[in-house]
């Protein structure tokens, strides 16, 4: 009489009138019974599908990959921040040296002492002045020469 019982349960099932316990009986019947009556064959795959679907478990390979990518990106971010901090520290440490005023370069050497720079400048100007004076005496001699020349070769 199993046929009648299953048939009745199936009819109730398709009307949406079965209780959860009755639906469990149908699932067990279709997963265990091998020699099904031809009238029930269509229902076997139906109930097997529910049984299989219940066994699906959450697996999150997609988000694992995403998390790994985020972690890698975070690591690179931290590396960039660390490098920036290093550069900032170096800049702060060497900034005062660069801030010292260089008043002059003498023979390629920077002179940061104002007094020394002024003394060196005066010395240099003196040398230039001497050179200029030497030039004027030569000019005087040329103009004298021209005067004499003018007297000898009278110009119109």
């Amino acid at each position: 009489m199993e046929y009648d019982k299953i048939r009745e349960l199936l009819n109730k099932y398709f009307e949406g009138d079965t209780a959860l316990e009755e639906e469990a009986i149908l699932r067990n019947y279709f997963s265990e019974e091998e020699a099904l009556h031809p009238d029930f064959i269509f229902a076997r795959e139906f109930f097997l599908h529910w049984t299989e679907s219940r066994q699906v478990e959450y697996k999150d390979s997609h988000h694992d990959k995403k998390n790994i990518a985020i972690k890698k990106r975070n690591r690179l971010g931290w590396l960039a921040i660390a490098a920036s901090v290093c550069l900032l520290v170096i800049a702060v440490l060497f900034w005062p040296v660069q801030q010292q005023t260089v008043y002059a370069y003498i023979n390629g050497q920077p002179i940061t002492d104002k007094e020394v720079a002024l003394a060196e400048m005066e010395k240099a100007l003196e040398q230039v002045s001497q050179g200029l004076n030497r030039g004027t005496s030569e000019l005087k001699r040329i103009s004298k020469f021209e005067e004499i020349e003018g007297r000898i070769f009278k110009r119109e």
């Binding site: 031809p38 009238d39 269509f42």
Partner: peptide, 19 residues
């Protein structure tokens, strides 16, 4: 009920099974 009946009818029709 509608969902179950829809699947049942399709299965019977497509596979020529009968209840």
């Amino acid at each position: 009920s509608r969902a179950r009946k829809f699947i049942k009818e399709k299965l019977i029709k497509l596979n020529n099974y009968g209840i």
